[in-house]
Structures are given as C-alpha cells and as structure tokens.
Design a protein around this nucleic acid. Structure first.
Lengths: 198, 198
DNA sequence: GTCTATATGTAGATAGAC
DNA sequence: GTCTATCTACATATAGAC
C-alpha cells in the first residue's frame, strides 16, 4: 500500500497510525488491517516489497563487474544506482521507501528485517570489496560500505539540511548531487582502504 | 534525565513512553511529567542538554584552525572528535545521545530542533570548508559535511551492522574504527571537492 | 470486500492527598 | 517533591451486518 509507505516514512513506525494510513488511502481503518494484517506485518511487507528488486539489481550489477579490472567508482555506482536514481530522481514513492530503509538500517529493533532483506546483497558487496583490497581489514571494508550507504540515505532523508547549510539559493540539480555522492563515496572507500595497500 | 535519554535512543520519540522512562529511572510516572514537562519538552531538553557543549567544542576546534594551512584531516577531526570519542569511546550515555542526534538529523519533524542546536556549528564548518575549496559548489560542500556526519552517526547507530557484514570475528577496536572513519571522511571530502579545484 | 460498531489496551497528563 | 488514582484521548484489532 503506497499510502502506508508514505505515512511510515513521514512518521516512523510508532508515529504512524492505522488511522493516518487509512485516511491517506481514503479507505476505512478496518480495511487496512484486513488487507495489511497487523501493523508490524504491514510494515515488514512494505520493506520487503521493494527490497527484492533492489537486491537483485545490486547483485547483478556487482556480478557484472567480476572478472573485469573494475574501478571503485563502478562498484559504488553498481551498488547505489538502483536506489538513488529512483529515490532522488523524482519518484516520491521510492523516496519514501528510502527513508524507511534509513530507519531500518539505523534501528536495532529492525535488525532481523535488515538481515533478511538487505544483508545478503551487502555481504556480497563486502566480499567483492575485500577481493579488491585484499590487505584491508574486513572490519574496515564493511565499515566503508556502511558509511557509503549512510551517505546515500542521508541524501534522501536530509536533502533539506544540505540546502539549508549551503546558504546558496542554487537549485537542487539532482543529477549533480548524485554524481557528487558517488564521488564522495568512491574517494572515501579508496582513501580509507587503499591507503594501506598502496 | 539519563533514563529518558536512554529510552528515547532505544525506542524513538513515539516509541518511548513516559511509563518506560519512569520505570528506567525508578521513579513514578507523575514525576517524569512534573520534572520534565510534556513529553515533547522533555525530548527537546534532552537534545539541548549536550548540544551546547558539542557546538562550543566544535566551534573552538575549527576556529583554532583558522589562519593555519590546515589539512582536511584536521578539520574532520575538529568537527567529529567531540562527539565520536565520547559516544564510541565507551560512554553509554553519550552513545544514546548520538543515536538521538541521528534521529533528529534524519527526520524532518525535528527540523526546527536541528536548526537551533546543530546548524550554527555546521554552518560555520561549511563556511570554513568553502574557504578551503573556493571553487567548489557550496551545495557540494554542505553535502560533503552532511555525508561525513551521517557516516559518523552510522558508526554509532549501526556498529552491529558493520560487525555483521565483516564476517570476521575481530574485536571492535574502537580507536581503530574512529581512525578509519576519519580517513573515510577526509578522503571523501577531499575527493569530491578537491577534484575540481586541483 | 467493505462498512459500522465496539472491545481492549495503553498513551499522556493532571488532580489532589500526603 | 512525591505518591495514588484517575481523566480523556486514541491506539490496534476484530466482530458481525451488509
């Protein structure tokens, strides 16, 4: 239910009420429970709904790099493009989903959910990075990925903050911000992992 | 109230109940309202309590760089050390606070709160960075800072995720993780802003 | 499948005794 | 200042008519 996705993203899990969701969807409260089940089940279903396409695209994009002498930039793009181009590219529903992903990623209460829906692709990505930086501490490698993902999610959740701090009136220019995000993450990963091997 | 800080950090604003807080503090519910006021006021007070020391330390540390030919690494350390060394250095109360900061930073509902307590120091930092990278788009500069901060907060909120993805059994080694975080952010900022000016 | 009505629990907040 | 008791509102969830 798109309405539930919006309300959860705006108010959080506890802050979102079935009433809010029903109102947004312009249906009766009872129907939300009827179709979506208990609140927690509804939330999990919403997380799962887009997670599969996300994971598949990430996995195929990273697998496509295998065998090549890929650059970190290619890797970052492979992992991030599936979400960031949709969420920051103008699709409000995917933007709401990205905010939910940020919640799930930052909150230990959703640890099990993250483990099922996001960890497989993330683990695969960490392994690919480890192969590229064989001398780097695996803890540092996974930290790099987590930092990169958190930066991506920050662009989705805190774009207002970026504008507020910049002071300039310059428009958002979504594509340029995405390029900048990729540059930041590429440099961060290379700089923090490559320093020891280079 | 330390108990409120803990419960808010674990359950979020809506998820934390006055009853939970009272139980944690081993007092009666009524006393939480009596001393802390309405729930929202209590939350704001908790955000404000440590924000002042944080902002002051950040400002003085960045001002101390002025005039020197400082490196980006020094800047990142100046901005991050006040929070990360406390939160990730073993103080559970500051760790809880860091999680609250992450909530406030990511949620538009707390925009006003962030504006008052965190934006002044952040704006000053952005200006310092702009002076260091005069040819960089201010939007990119503020984005870099937001990414860096989000990475720092990710280390506080998602350290469990880093461990889970690394696959290795290696201990956390807090100091090493902080060093790695600083390296990541230094490289990310330099790489995304310096590319155009260099 | 969709509505009304309601059951049941718990939230935040306060009144008033001590 | 701190307790007990309670008010009011709203939460999730379901029962049962249509």
């Amino acid at each position: 239910m798109d309405a539930a996705e919006q309300v959860f993203s705006e108010r959080g899990f506890e802050g979102a009420s079935i009433r809010d969701i029903a109102e947004r969807a312009q249906v009766q409260k009872a129907n939300v429970n009827f179709h979506g089940g208990p609140k927690e089940e509804l939330f999990e279903r919403i997380v799962a709904r887009r997670a599969s396409v996300l994971s598949e695209e990430r996995l195929t994009a990273i697998k496509a790099l295998e065998g090549q002498d890929w650059q970190v930039r290619d890797f970052v793009a492979a992992y991030m493009q599936p979400l960031i181009t949709r969420a920051f590219g103008g699709d409000p529903q995917w933007l709401a989903y990205a905010r939910i992903v940020a919640m799930v990623s930052a909150d230990t209460r959703w640890r099990a959910l993250a483990k099922v829906h996001f960890d497989p692709a993330a683990s695969f990505a960490v392994q690919a990075l480890c192969a590229r930086f064989p001398d780097a501490d695996p803890n540092r490698v996974s930290a790099s990925l987590v930092y990169a993902v958190s930066a991506m999610l920050a662009l989705c959740t805190s774009d207002w903050r970026i504008s507020a701090l910049s002071g300039s009136e310059g428009g958002p220019k979504a594509q340029d911000m995405i390029e900048n995000l990729l540059s930041f993450c590429e440099a961060g990963i290379t700089g923090s992992l490559g320093a020891e091997t280079a």
